[in-house]
Design a protein around this nucleic acid. Structure first.
Lengths: 168, 168
DNA sequence: TTAAACTTTCAAAACTTTTTGAAAGTTTAA
DNA sequence: TTAAACTTTCAAAAAGTTTTGAAAGTTTAA
């Protein structure tokens, strides 16, 4: 397989994975392109390579910066802005986990906390079922939250070392 | 807060979380409804409670069965089918992880494996960058895969016990 | 058998999300 | 200043996804 073809395939695969995980396809593709680019790229180059519009490229790049996955680079004597991706996969995983926790898990935890205090007649089976489900899900969610927290603070080697030890 | 209101809130929150995670909103809502229902419900009751059409209810219920999250119940002397959800949150988490691994992670692993064998000139920086990114992502993906595998086989208590030990 | 009770299908409609591109805005060198 | 080089915005269009509902299909009691 040619390198160019391989790059193309990677961009497609990454884009597909992204869209299945609620990150939009273009965003994942731009990220993939920057991940496998040796040098930082301009908006123009990104637009060209992925055949996307200027507006789309601009918004996507801004979102990626918001997610902490890419950065701008200023070059002396040049007007254009260059973009490059953090290439450390461990950082990527952490950034994504961090953002998704903030955007998705946190609000759910808040609702669950609120719902777990609903008062009712313990003998009422309707109430008992509701209460049990909420409590159980709340427990799981809190565990996930705690695990993410540790993961976010962890160093890569320490983290995987622990995983390996854990899973023999 | 009234029990009825609390139920409504839970269904909404679960639906929102689902849609952010690539599971469609209705599917997550039907799941939520069954999770907090003491008794198994008919298609009719689900349609009514969530204000959705027969077709939608039918497809959604079928998908949920496909995900292993709910089951049909047959009642002697009755024509209707009843549906109920597995209430064990640990099982729910495992089922979801299992399905998503099959649908999303497996295909990506396949592509990465293929791409990690692309041959090229090691001195070419373009090639070197590509190779490194693919190799790193491949490593991470394999680790995630292995972790999921263990999780899928694990008992709840054992799993969380290990997590706690790991994270002090 | 039959027909009532129920389930499934799927094309079209509704809704949601993403993308476009032209216009407006900003920055900088001269 | 000015104007060229660049970035940002956003309303409208395109694309993608979900939902509807009526018709077709299936099952079962009698």
């Amino acid at each position: 397989m040619e390198l160019a073809e391989a790059k193309q395939k990677f961009i497609e695969a990454w884009g597909k994975l992204g869209s299945e995980w609620g990150i939009n396809r273009t965003m994942a593709q731009v990220h993939a392109l920057l991940l496998i680019s040796t040098d930082a790229l301009t908006t123009e180059e990104i637009m060209e390579t992925l055949s996307i519009s200027r507006g789309n490229a601009n918004m996507t790049l801004r979102d990626l910066i918001g997610w902490g996955l890419i950065e701008k680079q200023h070059r002396a004597g040049e007007r254009k802005e260059y973009f490059f991706a953090d290439k450390d996969t461990w950082n990527i995983a952490r950034q994504v986990a961090k953002e998704r926790r903030k955007r998705e898990l946190d609000p759910v935890l808040k609702v669950l906390e609120e719902l777990s205090h609903v008062k009712g007649e313990t003998k009422d089976p309707e109430f008992a079922t509701f209460k049990k489900s909420i409590t159980d899900i709340n427990k799981l969610a809190k565990n996930v939250d705690k695990t993410l927290d540790t993961m976010l603070k962890a160093e890569e080697s320490w983290f995987w070392g622990s995983i390996f030890k854990m899973f023999k």
